[in-house]
């Protein structure tokens, strides 16, 4: 009886883990598509997929419009290496770059790009929001 209860418990936890993984799998193609095309997109297209808080942060920091700021920002264009989706947040590792995204009411948006790992510390990003 105890063994079967442990078995049920393990099955419930495994189902929860699979559910988490399954939900993330559904979102991965979309976040990978946005992240991999962001660097090559024209300035106005980049601004269209930037998260509102990131647009506001860029415009405030540079005292210019998002399109003007994006025109001056060059990012490496690389293929997708891996991606991770957790809740409403995502990370896409590209060759030479890491992009962070958030889910909004109008779809996935980029919160940070041009990011480099600093170990356990937060990534250092050339483009980021608050």
């Amino acid at each position: 009886m105890f063994r079967s209860r442990v078995g049920v418990g393990t099955a419930v936890l495994a189902a929860a883990a699979l559910l988490l993984a399954g939900c993330a799998d559904l979102e991965q193609p979309e976040v990978e598509r946005i992240a991999s095309t962001f660097a090559a997109a024209d300035p106005s297209a980049r601004c269209a997929v930037l998260a509102p808080a990131t647009v506001a942060a860029v415009e405030a920091a540079r005292s210019e419009s998002c399109v003007q700021a994006m025109a001056q920002l060059s990012l490496p264009e690389g293929a997708v290496v891996s991606s991770a989706v957790w809740g409403d947040q995502a990370q896409v590792q590209l060759v030479g770059d890491t992009v962070f995204l958030t889910r909004t009411s109008t779809g996935w948006k980029v919160t940070a790009a041009g990011c480099r790992s600093r170990g356990d510390a937060p990534y250092s990003c050339r483009l980021e929001g608050p």
Binding site: F2, R5, V6, G9, V12, L13, A16, A17, L20, A84, W86, G87, D88, Q89, A90, Q91, F100, T102, T111, A112, C115, S117, D120, A121, P122, Y123, C125, E128
Partner: peptide, 29 residues
């Protein structure tokens, strides 16, 4: 048994919430 199940559920849900927070603060899951 309920303790072990709910502690296990805490570990799975906490893992997912922790990783979402990691990504929000631009850290690796």
């Amino acid at each position: 048994g309920i303790f072990l199940l709910s502690w296990g559920a805490q570990s799975v849900a906490g893992w997912a919430a922790f990783n979402a927070e990691q990504l929000t603060s631009r850290q690796d899951p």
